[in-house]
Every structure is written in C-alpha cells, then in structure tokens.
C-alpha cells in the first residue's frame, strides 16, 4: 500500500506529540513551503533526502503518434527530483532466486 499524506500526519502526531489538527497543518505547510519555493523558481535542497530542481524545457513541435497531427508544446518548466545519497541506490534485496541465476 502506498504511503499517503494521512500516514505522514499520523507519524508527526505520534512522534512530535502534537494534536492531529496541528499535525495536519504542519504536514500541509511543509509541502506548501516547498511548492511556493519552487513556484518562485528557487530549487529546494534537503540534505540527506534530495534536491528538487527546476528544469527549463524549450518549446518544441510534438506529434500525436496516433493521428500524426503536429502540436506546439510551449516552453515550460518542470520539477525534477534528484535523490540524495541516502535515498539514491539502496542495495537490492537478493532474496529472489531468479535474479541470482542470471549472473
């Protein structure tokens, strides 16, 4: 099961000893601060976790693969996430025997 915002709220509630409404506000504010920083074009660097950076994409002509129709994709900015060292490459669990037999 995926981890959703409610799970984060519960974790904050239990580990920071705050009430649930406050935990909810804190989690919402946490993401809101990151979003508004990215909105202003400022990348977010979280030590040990990773960096959220803004990439500028140039305008290009794209093609609908089904109809062959051409469409102009305007220049835009996208958010990219670069995982930090602790997140990046976790050792792969080697419990799967099939993976082993490939080597």
């Amino acid at each position: 099961m995926a981890l959703v915002k409610n799970d984060l709220i519960n974790a904050v509630k239990e580990r920071c000893y705050v009430t649930e409404p406050l935990a909810r506000n804190l989690v919402e504010s946490f993401f809101e601060v990151i979003k508004s920083s990215l909105e202003e074009g400022d990348s977010v660097k979280l030590m040990g976790f990773g960096n959220f950076i803004i990439r500028k994409k140039e305008a290009r002509i794209a093609r609908n693969p089904k109809t062959g129709e051409e469409a102009l994709v305007e220049a835009r900015q996208v958010v990219a996430f670069k995982p930090g060292k602790n997140l990046k490459t976790k050792p792969v669990k080697e419990e799967d025997p099939k993976k082993e037999s490939n080597s």
Partner: peptide
C-alpha cells in the same frame, strides 16, 4: 524541526 525530520524519514 523534528516534524520536518519525521516527514522526510517517513517518506524515505
């Protein structure tokens, strides 16, 4: 401060 760590750890 703890809250921020808890969120990031939770995700990680």
């Amino acid at each position: 401060e703890k809250c921020v760590d808890v969120i990031l750890e939770g995700i990680a």
